[in-house]
Design a protein around this nucleic acid. Structure first.
Length: 1007
RNA sequence: GGGCGAUUAGCUCAGCGGUAGAGCGUCUCGUUGACAUCGAGAAGGUCACUAGUUCGAUCCUAGUAUCGCCCACCA
């Protein structure tokens, strides 16, 4: 064996071997259940990474933990399915491709057209989709790659797409999906609606065009006035008023004032009571808008009057609805002003030319200009800095606009109920538990989920629209607005056609073919190849049916259906992941066998996006044997975010991103994995420091060299070795330590305490096995006693094997390599380490006597070493040891282990005596005193100082224990074993103090 | 505004109702030794603060301070 484990070359080789042998296929290594039936299953679905993404630290942590669970179960004989896959990630992927097009100077998506663009995205997916898989494999992820899935099918009849369409259609039919026109979060960069979850609030600091609060004066119409307070006393009571003919309102978005349709005051606000029902004249626009009473207006805030722009503010929309205000949209889908040709805006208005000149201007430009125009008009009352939160699109990073559009919504509140109940009933549990609260809180206040996106990359909504049946307008040149459309929803056009032809009573339905769309040429096409004139007029999708020119067809006999242009939110398909990957909607044996899955491992940032929605969809569509709705997984393990060393979120702009692949290159996948595991304490952030990775790389080397030592000493695994068979205390002791280690690892993993498992292994391997067992075994391995040697070789090999097996889930590569290395001399291993049998060890293998003896021996050696170092005894010098104050049993113990102690503590002789020799240094060990004669070399002063210090410490402790034992209430109330423990401790302390004091006295005579 | 979490060694973090731990760093000593990616030893802590519960609190409870995150928001 080499001195070091060469991770770089070994990892690739081992990875390939696992794949070649199908080690991770579902069912590989599965063992029959106790009753002889099929193996118990253990299934996990991977949180599918974005298909164009690459592995980041969050993935590394997430997949390491999943891999640990999967490997652990696989070794224990479960039928493990770790289902891999990738997400089509609508916005993110479309963004990547659009950027790539722009960077390459190629035409943008609008120039390309939908079909060509989507094809281009598929091309991108085919090119880069495998990258993330390769990266996961480098990490060692033991997914069943033969079952890799993608959330989006190439065609609607692909199973993964059928699942999505099926769900959509069923929910539509149940009334849980519906189309509605309402304000949505509109991303002007991507020109799509986004859900509430995709909006993040960003703190805006005051700058020229944002982060300010502008106050405007809206003149009262018809000569109305009111008394406004202008001075207040200390209590805030107005002391002086002035008569005003205007109302002051404030806004952080001045450009929206062009769409104002009212001013609201609180119904109880005496200042304005008599103005309710009167009007103001909207400056710049010349529109008379009413003053309405609505409790939304807060009398304490500002002037108590608030401008109402129903089309551009969520609160205002509600106020407008309650008070019957008009809704006037003044922006395009790109958040530019939409004024000219805007019938809603122009109705009953008399806009100034300067105002109309804003048409087409960007919202921020328009904002500044509106302020300017108001100032010129003398109506700017003032402006204050006003840092505030502004909603931004989480991907585009631009400010979102509330925007009035037709969108598809999912009745999340209805679906949320079973999802809530399932967690409350314990059908699904969160670990750590406190995330349940977060989950509840969100689901209890859940709003309708906007599921339609105005993107091209995604599952296209399976709804086709046709004209109203009683519409007498001929099919030729027909223009519909969305509200008139009659929707037909089915998983494919055949189903739609059936519905439509029934609805239209025998007219033949044709599907609009988007690929024939050619805006430039406006080709006149036959009716079955009708073209569409799609105009995005800004405030909403206004689709106009195109010309239909085929005189041979009878318009009365024909109807043209137009498929909805929108695609579904990516998370809609992700929500189906636990069952769509298993073949749903087909009733497959895989679904039967592996659903529900066992554990979902995820970061808390997607509990709402993903976990909650999987719960909703799983419970809605899946049933168990008793027809009861079935959760998608029984446990959700929520891990933390990976941050940098100082707790900062890793981000490109901060430049603190650690690339897991760099770590793997430099330190190996195992060290990277071990670090993440050791730091993955439940409920805490993971602050990743490279020095720790290095430390665990060293740990790997340590283990490697321990195995190398075993090899050099012919510690070869013995077939059928019985761990109860060793007779030497050292060997019996390491068997016991191994039993405890395995139990602790099992317990930790069962409780998802990954860091405990890692710590247990680290300590066992480095401290127990390497530092002590291997050292203690050297005399036996290298000694004359052939029996002891054979026993020790077998025991060491056995203990090392248990170590390799138990470490495998966390460090799969080095353990696989060691499995091969250590098995080579035993004639090879029957299988790979990934399929090794997880140890099942009887607790009674641990021998208490051996534990006590070795524990004592270790402490003796430590004591001697400590004293030598403190007394500056040269490392090479061999000392004598004299034990005093001992019982015969302890003397026997010392003599039994004298060879070990001599070797490890560098002693020339070990003896027992009545009295310690003069000129010796002494320490106390349990019931005896250990003296090292150092006559001549001893620094009396230093030694007496050391002893005094030691005695002081012990006396102090004795005092504390005495006080405890003198406390009547302690004696009566504390558990008996604690009391006994303290009594024992007092006795020990007293003995130690006595012995050390005696040593100190002896020293005094010497000085 | 609502919720969650944190505060332990120089740094990064575990832990726990009864003797305070790890990694890295620091200091001393050590290479014929499986491993210098190492070994032996050591130094370093009022477990944020205050009060309570308890025989006993770093741990449980409440409050305070500081920091972080999530959700919802004032025009």
């Amino acid at each position: 064996m080499d001195k070091h484990f060469d991770a770089a070359t070994a990892e690739a080789r081992i990875s390939a071997a696992w794949e070649e042998r199908g080690c991770f296929r579902a069912g590989a290594n599965a063992k029959p259940a106790a009753d002889g039936g099929p193996a118990e299953t253990f299934s996990i679905v991977i949180p599918p990474p974005n298909v164009t993404g690459s592995l980041h630290m969050g993935h590394a942590l997430n997949n390491t933990l999943q891999d640990i669970l999967c490997r652990w179960h696989r070794m224990r004989g479960f039928d493990v399915l770790w289902q891999p896959g990738q997400d089509h990630a609508g916005i993110a992927t479309q963004m990547v491709v659009e950027r790539a097009l722009a960077a390459a100077g190629e035409p943008g998506r609008h120039e390309m057209g939908r079909e060509a663009f989507v094809e281009r995205v598929w091309q991108q997916k085919d090119e880069s989709g495998g990258i993330i898989i390769g990266q996961l494999q480098r990490l060692g992820a033991s997914c069943d790659w033969s079952r890799n899935r993608f959330t989006l099918g190439r065609t609607d009849d692909d199973q993964m797409s059928r699942a999505v369409l099926e769900v959509f259609v069923r929910l539509y039919e149940e009334g849980l999906i519906y189309r509605d026109k309402r304000l949505v979060n509109w991303d002007p960069y991507f020109e799509t609606a986004i859900s509430d979850l995709e909006v993040e609030q960003v703190q805006i600091r005051p700058r020229k065009d944002a982060g300010k609060l502008w106050r405007f004066r809206y003149p009262l119409a018809d000569g109305a006035t009111y008394e406004a307070p202008v001075a207040w006393d200390e209590d805030g009571t107005p002391t002086r008023h002035e008569t005003r003919d205007y109302i002051v309102v404030a806004t952080t978005r001045p450009e929206t004032m062009l769409g104002d349709t009212g001013v609201a005051v609180h119904p109880d606000d005496a200042r304005y009571a008599h103005l309710v029902g009167k009007h103001v004249v909207l400056p710049l626009v010349g529109r008379r808008i009413p003053i309405v009473a609505d409790s939304y207006a807060d009398p304490e805030t500002g002037t108590g009057a608030v401008k109402i722009t129903p089309a551009h503010d969520f609160n205002d929309f509600d106020v407008g609805k309650r008070t019957g205000l008009r809704v006037i949209n003044v922006m395009t889908s790109k958040a530019a002003m939409f004024l000219e040709g805007n019938a809603d805006f122009l109705a009953d208005a008399d806009p100034e030319p300067d105002t109309l000149a804003l048409d087409g201007k960007d919202r921020y430009e328009a904002r500044l200009r509106v302020v300017e125009l108001m100032e010129i008009a003398g109506l700017l009352d003032g402006v204050d800095d006003n840092p505030h939160l502004v909603p931004h699109g989480d991907r585009s990073k631009v400010a979102i606009e509330p925007f009035l559009t037709d969108q598809w919504f999912c009745d999340a509140a209805t679906l949320a109920k079973p999802a809530l109940e399932a967690v409350k009933a314990g059908d699904t549990r969160f670990a750590p538990e406190n995330w349940e609260k977060t989950y509840f809180q969100w689901l209890e206040n859940i709003q309708p989920w906007c599921i339609s996106r105005q993107l091209w990359w995604g599952h296209r909504i399976p709804v086709w629209y046709g004209p109203p049946k009683d519409d007498s307008v001929p099919i030729h040149g027909l223009a519909y607005s969305s509200k008139d459309w009659v929707p037909f929803c089915a998983t494919d056009f055949a189903g739609v056609r059936e519905q439509a032809e029934a609805y239209y009573e025998g007219r033949t339905a044709f599907e609009f073919d988007a690929s024939r769309y050619d805006e430039k040429n406006r080709i006149k096409l036959p009716v079955d190849r009708v073209m569409e004139d799609f105009q995005n007029a800004g405030q909403e999708h206004n689709f106009h049916m195109g010309l239909v020119e085929d005189e041979t067809m009878d318009p009365e006999r024909v109807v043209v259906l137009n498929r909805d242009e929108d695609v579904l939110d990516t998370w809609f398909s992700s929500a189906l992941w636990p069952f769509s990957t298993l073949g749903w909607p087909d009733e497959t044996s895989q679904l039967e066998r592996y659903y529900k899955t066992d554990v979902l491992v995820t970061g808390f940032d997607i509990i709402f996006f993903w976990v909650a929605r999987m719960m909703m969809m799983g419970l809605h569509f899946m049933k168990d044997d008793t027809a009861k709705p079935e959760v998608p997984f029984h446990t959700v393990y929520v891990h933390a975010l990976v941050r940098d060393e100082h707790g900062k979120k890793m981000s490109k702009t901060l430049g603190n991103v650690i690339d897991p692949l760099d770590l793997i290159d430099q330190y190996g996948a195992d060290a990277t994995r071990f670090t993440l595991t050791a730091m993955a304490a439940m409920g805490r952030d993971v602050r990743l420091s490279v020095s720790r990775v290095e430390g665990y790389r060293n740990f790997q080397t340590k283990l490697w060299n321990a195995a190398r030592f075993c090899e050099m000493n012919d510690c070869v695994p013995v077939a059928g070795f019985d761990p109860a068979s060793p007779t030497r205390p050292v060997n019996r002791w390491i068997v016991g330590e191994t039993v405890r280690m395995v139990a602790a690892v099992d317990e930790a993993l069962a409780a998802y305490r990954f860091n405990d498992a890692a710590t247990t292994l680290y300590d066992h391997i480095w401290k127990t096995f390497c530092d002590w067992y291997l050292e203690l075994s050297k005399p036996l391995l290298q000694g004359e006693d052939a029996g002891a040697q054979a026993e020790t070789r077998a025991t060491a090999a056995w203990a090392l094997d248990r170590i390799i097996i138990c470490l495998h889930p966390i460090m799969p590569f080095v353990t696989e390599a060691l499995w091969e290395e250590t098995g080579a001399r035993a004639g090879g291993r029957p299988g790979m380490c990934a399929h090794a049998d997880w140890p099942v060890l009887a607790q009674d293998l641990a021998d208490a006597d051996a534990d006590a003896e070795m524990g004592w021996t270790i402490r003796l050696i430590e004591g001697i070493r400590s004293l030598r170092a403190e007394m500056n005894v040269p490392a090479g010098a061999k000392l004598e040891l004299v034990m005093t104050g001992h019982t015969p049993a302890v003397a026997m113990r010392l003599l039994r282990n004298s060879e070990l102690v001599q070797r490890m503590a560098r002693l020339s002789e070990v003896a027992v005596a009545e009295h310690a020799p003069d000129g010796s240094v002494t320490f106390s060990l349990d019931d005896c005193a250990i003296s090292l004669p150092l006559a001549g070399v001893i620094d009396v002063e230093a030694e007496s100082a050391r002893l005094t210090r030691e005695i002081d410490k012990l006396v102090k402790e004795r005092k504390a224990v005495e006080a405890k034992l003198a406390n009547e209430r302690f004696l009566t109330k504390a558990p008996a074993e604690i009391v006994a423990e303290n009594r024992q401790r007092l006795e020990t302390l007293a003995g130690e103090i006595t012995r050390l004091e005696a040593a100190l006295a002896r020293l005094a005579t010497l000085g």
